[in-house]
Computed example of a mutant assay.
Amino acid sequence: MSTVFRELLGVEKPIIAMCHFPPMPGSPLYDARAGLEGIKEWVARDIRHLQDGGVDAIMFCNEGDRPYTLKASPATLATMASVIGQLRSEIRVPFGVDVLWDPVAAIALASATGARFVREVFTGVYSSDMGLWNTNAGESLRFRRNIGADHVKLIFNINAEFAGFLGQRPLPLIAQSVVFSSLADVVAVSGTMTGQAPQLPDLELVKRAVPDTPVVANTGVRAENVREILQVADGVIVGTALKQDGNTWKPVDPDRVKRFVGAARG
């Protein structure tokens, strides 16, 4: 069994909680009245609630930047780097980053902020809400090497949200392929979109296909299903279930965090 999570996060089956940034400058839903200070206050509050609730790690993501693009804007990267940097002293747990849907930008942000991992869609060609989506894992990993960021681990989301494969390969074969040829550190299995759980049989098949690589449930994990999912998965990434009223776009609910962590750890 891989020791990636033990070495990276200090636990074997981590709860990785999403800290969703609200819309940032240039995004259609950006709140210019609240401004950058409003973004910082939002993120700081969510960090506090997640850490106090007992999660093992936090992942920062520009979830509010709808509609999503396949190349991150300079404003998004600059805002995320600035806010994470200003709040760095308040972050007590390991953290990672995700920039939708730009792997190179996410690796750059991780290197600049001290993040330990990145989650992204690194491989495959998709018909998506963002148009035709083509990826380039070779470019991303070479960029990581060129900037001296080999210590940043890569979580490969192998079935992208808001998108469908153009190929016909089954998930277990894709998992084997990305571990063998694209050097995935961790494999993530998603539902069809944010907040939708992956099918448990899919998790089981993927885990069986790559037994020596950590496999995480990437979406739709809730207090009601986390124990069952962790019987198969090596960890979970959770966002929506920790929000007020289970609404992706609302702030983190501290009571929901505590319930989730309690359910996960029994």
Rank of each mutant, 00 (worst) to 15 (best):
F122P: 01
T123H: 06
T123F: 09
Y126A: 00
Y126E: 00
S127C: 09
S127I: 08
S127A: 12
D129H: 12
D129C: 09
M130G: 06
M130P: 07
M130R: 11
M130E: 14
G131R: 07
W133R: 00
W133I: 01
W133A: 08
W133Q: 02
W133K: 02
W133Y: 15
N134F: 08
N134H: 10
N134L: 10
T135M: 07
T135E: 04
T135P: 03
N136V: 09
N136Q: 11
N136G: 11
A137R: 01
A137Y: 05
G138T: 10
E139M: 14
S140K: 02
S140M: 07
S140T: 13
S140F: 02
S140Q: 06
S140W: 00
L141K: 10
R142M: 06
R142N: 09
R142W: 05
R144G: 02
R144Y: 04
N146Y: 09
N146P: 01
N146F: 08
N146W: 05
N146V: 05
I147F: 00
I147T: 02
I147Y: 00
I147R: 00
G148V: 11
G148A: 11
A149Q: 08
A149H: 07
A149D: 06
A149C: 10
D150T: 14
D150P: 06
H151I: 02
K153Y: 03
I155K: 03
I155S: 08
F156N: 01
F156D: 00
I158Y: 02
I158D: 01
A160R: 03
A160I: 03
A160N: 06
A160Q: 05
E161V: 10
E161H: 05
F162L: 10
F162I: 04
F162T: 07
F162R: 08
F162G: 02
F162P: 01
A163I: 02
G164A: 15
L166P: 01
L166I: 13
Q168M: 14
R169A: 15
P170L: 11
L171M: 14
L171H: 04
P172S: 12
P172Y: 07
I174Q: 03
I174C: 09
I174D: 02
A175C: 13
Q176C: 13
Q176L: 14
S177T: 15
V178F: 04
V178A: 08
V179A: 14
V179N: 08
F180Y: 15
F180M: 14
